[in-house]
């Protein structure tokens, strides 16, 4: 299929074919990572800007490296020590950077919809690297990529997403993407951390019984409790949480033989996931990280690539 999008704002608006296109492109880029010279010239001369309003070394490094492997130039702006912390609006900041002649913004922001707002005000590509509790599309894609790689398919599988659903952009992106590819998705966690209307909103199942969910799942994606978003107010304490909702070896005895354990990191070890499991045979956590690079290369390549450009040019003619 021909890729036509300039932005990647969320997985909710992507079609199944578009998601598959990204995954397939990522698979071909993963091959590049295995070479001794790990660079391709696809985006030579183009500039990718990381605009991070929330701290994140992991995701920003992953995007920066992905851009470099495509031979793009990279810049990064973080919220501390720049005009961002001096009260400049998002749009003003972006327009000032855009004036330097950049091609894409990779944006992380605490406000849901910030990438959507930016996309309305810029000519550049906008890639959402996490907007508040809304979506984190590349994380969703890399999780799905990892499931497909490890289990050979997505359709027909049961994927459980465990923990702090309320505050999780990862859960929302995963749910949208997995559902489109035909997986069964169960969101499970304490009732207060699973928003009341989320099942209807995302077309998924909801459970508060972790043991029952573990028995059914082909993949278990544990989410980090977002203490930074005051998630602690929603449950009585971490000991209680670990005992009732955490994933531990004892609980995993019920799991299917081939079930894999995932985590988007960083892990609250011993709370949502025990160290033994995080580092154990079922864990694919490090593969998720390396797949993240391939997925982000694919996203940058497609959104900034020749196909997307010609669409942008066409839009201008029509407008």
């Amino acid at each position: 299929m021909a890729w036509t999008r300039k932005h990647l704002l969320d997985l909710e608006s992507l079609s199944k074919a578009e998601i598959v296109e990204i995954l397939d492109t990522a698979a071909s880029f993963k091959e590049v990572s295995g070479r001794s010279v790990k660079k391709v010239p696809a985006l030579r001369g183009r500039v990718v800007v990381n605009l991070f309003y929330e701290a994140s070394t992991r995701t920003s490094n992953s995007f920066a490296l992905a851009a470099k492997r495509l031979s793009a130039d990279t810049m990064s702006f973080s919220s501390s020590g720049s005009s961002v912390s001096k009260g400049e609006t998002l749009i003003d900041t972006a327009k000032n950077i855009e004036a330097m002649g950049v091609d894409a913004f990779v944006i992380r922001h605490s406000a849901p919809g910030a990438p959507h707002l930016l996309a309305r005000h810029t000519q550049c590509s906008v890639i959402n690297a996490g907007d508040g509790c809304h979506e984190h599309p590349t994380q969703g894609l890399l999780d799905i990529f990892t499931i497909r790689e490890k289990l050979g398919k997505v359709a027909g599988l049961t994927v459980a997403i465990l923990g702090d659903i309320r505050h999780s952009r990862v859960a929302r992106s995963n749910a949208h993407g997995l559902r489109k590819l035909g997986a069964r998705v169960i969101l499970a966690g304490p009732p207060t951390l699973v928003p009341p209307a989320i099942a209807a909103a995302l077309g998924v199942e909801v459970s508060h019984d972790i043991d029952a969910v573990v028995e059914q799942a082909d993949a278990l994606n544990c989410l980090r409790i977002q203490f930074e978003r005051k998630a602690g107010r929603f449950f009585p304490g971490v000991r209680e949480y670990a005992a009732i909702y955490g994933l531990n070896e004892d609980r995993m005895k019920r799991a299917k033989p081939g079930a894999i354990i995932m985590h988007p990191g960083p892990i609250n070890r011993g709370i949502e996931l025990t160290p033994e499991l995080a580092d154990g045979d079922r864990s694919v956590i490090l593969q998720q990280v390396s797949n993240g690079l391939a997925v982000r290369m694919a996203v940058l390549y497609l959104c900034m690539g020749v196909g997307a450009q010609s669409v942008a040019a066409r839009e201008e003619v029509e407008a």
């Binding site: 849901p112 508040g132 979506e135 209307a197």
Partner: peptide, 11 residues
């Protein structure tokens, strides 16, 4: 408003 839309938007 708290409902389907807020749940989907993470707001």
């Amino acid at each position: 408003h708290e409902g389907k839309v807020s749940a989907a938007l993470g707001i």
